[in-house]
Design a protein around this nucleic acid. Structure first.
Lengths: 206, 206, 206, 206
DNA sequence: CATGAATGAGTCTTCATTCAT
DNA sequence: CATGAATGAAGACTCATTCAT
């Protein structure tokens, strides 16, 4: 029965993901169960809590995000990698369709996040070496840029994808060197980043 | 009695605003009532529904936003107005402390939003005339820029305000002319904008 | 509406008491509500928790117990008071019909319990002065004697009241002086008593 | 396979007994199964119902009780047997650690109970012949005395064993002859005793 | 036979909204 | 008008029991 069980687990996860995409946390466990074609008890057998279920949604999301980041880092032309990275992150986020909101804070995302930031640091270093990025931009700045674009994607993906694409163009351009004025505010640190993630809008229901 | 009634209405609104700032929609009507020093019945006398009450929170918020925009437009140096405008919007949003989320979509915000966009158009035209902005930026692009920064402010205002400030610096810089590549995506239209607003994350509880 | 509210509160309490007598904690809040002729919400308005409701059941029970103890202490003949006390406690417990189980431990019972033990101490002192009790019996011993008889009453009150009455006769007799052998075990202390109360069988449902 | 099956049955029983001692009925069948190292299905193969399992717990308990009673009856000095019996019952109950509550009523206990009462009758007759017990005490009275002490043991065994030991001393003393007043209530009959057992507090979960 | 996955009725609790006083 | 009591539909979670593998 391992096999059936695994299938049901996937169904539950799929149902939850669907609902999360549609309504961002505002669904009942019963809905998940019935959409997955199982009883509530089955949901609770696999996930001790509704929140645990939501957390589990984060795993494939971040795994994919990390894969995308690493693929960008593997791009043949180092000088292009930063732009490729940012655009790829946005595309994947749009394709995935998850409203990332709460998920960045899921326990499961922690190690993946770290690896993600590390990759981002490598990419930025290369872009800097190639003179393809403003000198005053730091790794976490790029993280914030991506974070901000995902917020826009979440909100506009279905209704008006043109918005985030145009905004993305602008953002990408903003990172390029040339005639920039020095940034007045100090760079974003890891601690700031943690705070950002921890404070990201909670879409869960009470 | 009119006077008492009006006072009660204000109290309720003030209490709701406080709670909204603290917990973003995750509060009960009883809490609003008790913080306002009235009974629930009184809240329901003034506002037919909890959602109606939340909508009403949007009015002063947008009025203030509009005032801020107009003040920026009144800035003595036309060439500076765009930057002043963007920074002022961010500051006011941060000061106001409202998580704007749902509020842009409130019925009450409609006329104010239009006026806001009109003002923004004027400011942008002046900036363009003064050569202080990329030629390919359109009014709604600025709207989106401001919208995106407010998302960051909402999330980081308490925990790490440095984040949004630095990001704001970068954004402001990104709008300046000089060496930019043409934007690949078409400008944001009014329709896109409406969609953005309508799809903004709903922070209401179920 | 104060009046109605108070009436409803009483009804809820009465319904809960009835059910507690019948089934000792094994009832649902919905049952309490429907037997009281109100909705569940009304129950929860008055009592934040099912356990809080059960605790509240303890109050009149212990108040009555204390009253009974004090009445016994007021008995005209000091020498008789101890026996009168023990018999009265048993009678009242039987009349009240509460399975005392959990109630001794209710927060509300604390101060009443202390007063109860104090009264018991006075009565015992008088009985000793009158030579009507074994010299080696201490106040908490009497408390335990009463506690043990209530256990029997709880279990047999409906089915075979003769049992506890006969046992009570025996117990009362056992406290009288004359030919007794010294008790081998040290007296019960206040700490022991607290432990007894705290460990009394929990009849609440999970 | 018989052998495995029997082993499993014992394991389940042992696990259930452990849990019953720890939490008196407030455990799940899954807990029993996992502590026994089997699946729930296996538990249900051996015991049709959770209650049936609990009933089965009574068997060794009563067998031991009976053994203890018979050992007391075999005590070399007939005159001492009653006291030895009572003390031994208490000790065994305390050692065994079962909260006897529900168990006296288990179907399985019926024949053992009868034998137990018979033994008790023999012991009492001997004590009476030796003039070591009040003349008005009947067999079932002794049963009730033991029953009442077990209630105290259940409640205080872990927290304050001194309590039941002292109470036991008092009870033992109370049965001795000398200066007693006649008991006002009629003796306990077999029917009363059955009622007592049947009404003993139900510790089962809903 | 053993396993443990699946079930779903049942429990407590919350809260927007209505309505008697 | 104001009050706050009453309502009851949900919702998250538990667990004895059944049943497919």
């Amino acid at each position: 029965m391992r096999c059936d069980a695994a299938r049901n687990r996937e169904r539950v996860l799929a149902a939850a993901l669907e609902l999360y995409r549609e309504r961002g946390g505002a669904f009942t466990v019963e809905e998940v169960a019935s959409r997955a074609g199982v009883g509530v008890g089955t949901v609770y057998r696999r996930f001790p809590t509704k929140n645990a279920l939501l957390d589990e949604l984060a795993r494939p999301f971040f795994e994919q995000l990390l894969t995308t980041a690493q693929a960008a880092h593997g791009h043949p032309e180092p000088a292009e990698r930063l732009e490729v990275f940012i655009r790829a992150m946005a595309e994947q986020h749009a394709i995935d369709g998850v409203r990332s909101g709460r998920l960045w804070d899921a326990a499961v995302a922690r190690p993946l996040r770290d690896e993600y930031v590390r990759t981002l640091g490598l990419i930025l270093a290369e872009a800097r070496a190639a003179g393809r990025v403003r000198a005053d931009v730091e790794p976490y700045d790029v993280g914030v840029v991506v974070w901000s674009i995902t917020g826009l994607i979440d909100a506009t993906q279905h209704a008006a994808p043109v918005i985030w694409r145009r905004y993305l163009d602008l953002l990408v351009d903003s990172l390029r060197p040339g005639g920039e004025r020095p940034l007045a505010t100090r760079p974003v640190t890891q601690g700031d980043w943690e705070d950002l993630v921890a404070a990201s809008p909670v879409l869960r229901l009470g």
